[in-house]
Nucleic acid binder design. Structure first.
Length: 214
DNA sequence: AAAACGGGGGC
DNA sequence: GCCCCAGTTTT
C-alpha cells in the first residue's frame, strides 16, 4: 500500500474550506493567542471568542491580568469550560510572564509548556498563530482525522504531531491545523461523520469502510 | 493509564 | 435531561 495522500487531501480541504483563519483569536498578538487558546481548551470556539473579547476589553495586558482579581476574571470568561481553573491559571501565567519574561510571551516550546495550563497543543498554537512559526498543534480533531484517514496507527497526539511534521510539505504547514479543525467541526465530526458529503472519503480508510456494501 | 477538572449551550 | 466541548494536570 502506498503512503498517505497528503497533498491530495490538503488540496481538497482547501477547496472546501478556503484559507481564511478559522477564528478571531488566531490573528492576534502572542499574548492574546496564549490566553484565548487556554480559554479554548475543551470549549466551543463561539464561546471562546466571546469570552476572550470580554476579557481583553477589560484587561488587555499581562500586567493588567496579573493584578486582576480572580473573581473578576471568572465572571468575564463564563461560560467557558473549567472557568474557575482557567481564571486561576490565566492570572498565574500572566504573573509569570511579567516576572520572568519582562511582559513578553516566550517564543520557545520548552518555556511555554512550563507555564501552568499550557501543554503541547497550546504551546504549538502560540508558536503557530502568535509567532508564525511552523508549529503543528494536534487537538482531538486533528488526531481523529489522521486516524480515520489511516495515516497513523498509534494513539497519542504526540505521535500524530511527529507524523504530520514528517509528511506534510513545508508550504502546507501553516494551513494543516486550520483545515483539519474546520473539517473536524463540519463533515468529519466525532460522531456520525458525513462521509457521503466528504470529498476525501475515497482516500480515507474510515470513509471507504463507511461505503462498503453500498 | 485513568480520573479530575467542571458547566453552559445545543439538541 | 443528556451529551458534548481546539486539553492539562494530578492521582
Amino acid at each position: 500500500m502506498d503512503g498517505p495522500h497528503v497533498v491530495e487531501v490538503l488540496e481538497a480541504l482547501k477547496n472546501l474550506y478556503g484559507t481564511r483563519p478559522w477564528n478571531w483569536h488566531t490573528q492576534q498578538k502572542p499574548f492574546y493567542v496564549l490566553i484565548a487558546t487556554i480559554l479554548s481548551q475543551r470549549t466551543r470556539d463561539s464561546q471562546t471568542d466571546e469570552a476572550a473579547q470580554r476579557l481583553f476589553s477589560r484587561y488587555s495586558s499581562p500586567q493588567a491580568l496579573a493584578s486582576a482579581p480572580i473573581e473578576e476574571i471568572e465572571k468575564l470568561i463564563i461560560p467557558v469550560n473549567f472557568y474557575r481553573t482557567k481564571a486561576k491559571r490565566i492570572k498565574e501565567v500572566s504573573s509569570l510572564i511579567v516576572r520572568d519574561f519582562g511582559g513578553e510571551v516566550p517564543r520557545s516550546f520548552d518555556l511555554l509548556t512550563r507555564l501552568p495550563g499550557v501543554g503541547r497543543k497550546t504551546a504549538n498554537c502560540v508558536l503557530l498563530y502568535g509567532f508564525h512559526e511552523t508549529a503543528l498543534p494536534v487537538d482531538t480533531h486533528v488526531h481523529r482525522i489522521a486516524n480515520r484517514l489511516g495515516w497513523i496507527e498509534t494513539n497519542t497526539a504526540e505521535d500524530t504531531e511527529r507524523l504530520l511534521k514528517s509528511i506534510v510539505p513545508k508550504e502546507w504547514i501553516p494551513l494543516v491545523n486550520d483545515l483539519f479543525v474546520k473539517h473536524g467541526q463540519t463533515l468529519c465530526s466525532p460522531v456520525r461523520p458525513k462521509c457521503s458529503d466528504c470529498p476525501i472519503a475515497y482516500l480515507c480508510k474510515y470513509g471507504k469502510q463507511a461505503f462498503k456494501g453500498k
